[in-house]
Each structure stands twice: as structure tokens, then as C-alpha cells.
């Protein structure tokens, strides 16, 4: 037999890129309907809630105006939501209804490549959605360039983090409706209790503790730090949290989804 033969299948980086490329092509196919909402949503939010509400909120929050406080928070919540939707509903549809993965796995990529590629793609969407919010915040003078240009990178990390957690959730889900629990039971509360809409420092102690544990809090700290150039050593802990979280949840997601993809 010819097992000594070396087969020139693409190397790892290319295999991940080809998975990413597939998702990118499908996403950009409907550029207007997919690409416009990320810009419109923060605009509506800022105009409706921010400008309307902030008249009544004169107190500064964590040393910044309320509109800056809320706007910087939106830079990462948008990444959280898009990556979570991508790796729950969209992944589930590709997995169960469209059988997209069956087709992809017939090509020279492994299940690991497929899932890691998926996570990187969700991170990319996080980056893009963060960037869209940045484009809205900047003309209003809510954040300043050039330092705020780092914010989409935090959006990427946030996307990757929520992608790995969402994929793990997806690996357990049998019917698509179960995601409602994750969305309203986990993501929505996190939106309110991670220091996006108001600071967590005034909350009761047990709630503060929970806020420390959930992932979004760490993204919010990082993004405010880069937007305001307020760096302190504590941020390294937030960054470390995100990296460890991605490694742990990513590995678990790969393990569990492998069982679903390879019989």
C-alpha cells in the first residue's frame, strides 16, 4: 500500500480560513439586510434611550457621563449578542436542518477545524458589530479616536468568548426552542447586571459576586479601559479570565459537538 505517500492537503491555518471563508461568503451575500442593522441598532438605542434618558441622569457613572458609560458598554454587548445568535440558532440550523456540516466534513477538514473556524467567524462578527457601534459613537463625540479603535478587538474577544459558550449550549440542545432559556435566562440578565446600563458597585454584595463571575463584566471593563485610555494592572486579570474562559469552553464545545457530528 501507499501509506508512505504524503498527501498535500491544506495546512491548519488554511483549513480554518476555508471554514471562515464559507461563513463570510454566506453572510455577505445579503449585505444590506445583514450589514445595515448593526449600524442602525446602536443609533436607535443612543437616540431613543441615551439622549432621552440621560437628561434625567446627571450623576456621572464611574467617572464618565452616562452616555459614554452606556455607549462603551454597547460596544461589547452587541458583540455578545451577535456571536451568541450565530453559535446557537444559526449553528443549530446548519447542524440539524440544512445539514451544512455534513457537506463540509466530506472535504478535507476535521471536526475540530470546523468548530474552531466557527468560533473565529463568530469573533469576526463580534469585531464587525463593535466596529459598527464605534462608527455611531464617534461622530457624537461619545468616544475618542484613535484610542477607541482598539474597541473592536475587544469585540472580537467577546465574540470568541460567547461563541465558545454558546456552542457548548448548542451541543446540549435537542430542539431549537430550548435556546429561549439561554437567551432570556442568561444573556438578557447579563446585559443588566454586568455594568453596562449601570455600575455594579452599588448592587448588593451577592449580586456583585455574580457579576464578577459572568463573562460580560470582563469585556465591559476592557472596552471602557481602551476607550478612555484608563489602564491599570487589574485589566490583566480580565484579559486572563477571557482567555481561560475561551480555552475551557472551546475545548468542551469541541468535545461535545464532535460526538454530535461524528457518529
Amino acid at each position: 500500500m501507499r501509506s508512505s505517500e504524503t498527501i498535500p492537503y491544506p495546512h491548519l491555518a488554511w483549513r480554518l480560513y476555508s471554514v471562515w471563508y464559507r461563513h463570510m461568503r454566506v453572510y455577505t451575500k445579503n449585505l444590506v439586510s445583514n450589514g445595515l442593522p448593526p449600524f442602525l441598532e446602536p443609533l436607535l438605542f443612543l437616540v431613543g434611550v441615551g439622549l432621552g434618558l440621560s437628561r434625567y441622569i446627571t450623576e456621572s457613572m464611574d467617572g464618565m457621563s452616562y452616555i459614554t458609560f452606556l455607549g462603551t458598554g454597547l460596544l461589547v454587548t452587541t458583540a455578545m449578542f451577535t456571536a451568541s445568535f450565530e453559535c446557537t440558532y444559526a449553528t443549530f440550523i446548519r447542524l440539524e436542518f440544512e445539514k451544512v456540516y455534513d457537506g463540509m466534513l466530506a472535504a478535507p477538514i476535521t471536526v475540530n477545524n470546523l468548530i474552531v473556524g466557527e468560533i473565529i467567524w463568530a469573533g469576526t462578527k463580534g469585531l464587525f458589530f463593535s466596529f459598527a457601534v464605534l462608527c455611531i459613537l464617534t461622530p457624537f463625540g461619545i468616544v475618542r479616536l484613535p484610542q477607541a479603535l482598539l474597541a473592536p478587538l475587544v469585540g472580537f474577544l467577546t465574540g470568541v468568548m460567547f461563541a465558545s459558550m454558546s456552542l457548548l449550549v448548542t451541543s446540549f440542545v435537542k430542539t431549537i426552542n430550548h435556546f429561549n432559556f439561554y437567551m432570556t435566562g442568561f444573556l438578557s440578565p447579563m446585559f443588566f447586571f454586568s455594568g453596562v446600563v449601570f455600575p455594579v458597585s452599588n448592587l448588593p454584595k451577592p449580586v456583585q459576586l455574580v457579576a464578577q463571575i459572568v463573562p460580560l463584566t470582563h469585556s465591559v471593563r476592557l472596552v471602557r479601559a481602551v476607550c478612555l485610555s484608563r489602564y491599570d494592572p487589574g485589566l490583566l486579570a480580565n484579559l486572563a479570565y477571557i482567555l481561560v474562559f475561551v480555552a475551557v469552553f472551546g475545548a468542551l464545545a469541541v468535545r461535545r459537538l464532535r460526538r454530535r457530528l461524528v457518529s
Binding site: R2, S3, E5, I7, A107, P108, I109
Partner: peptide, 14 residues
């Protein structure tokens, strides 16, 4: 092609 799919799926798929 002389490859074991459990170890060398990429070669076989290619």
C-alpha cells in the same frame, strides 16, 4: 489508499 480513516482522515478526504 493505505491510510486509516481513524488516524488520517484528511489524506483520505483529500
Amino acid at each position: 489508499f493505505g491510510f486509516d480513516p481513524a488516524r488520517d482522515e484528511l489524506s483520505i478526504k483529500y
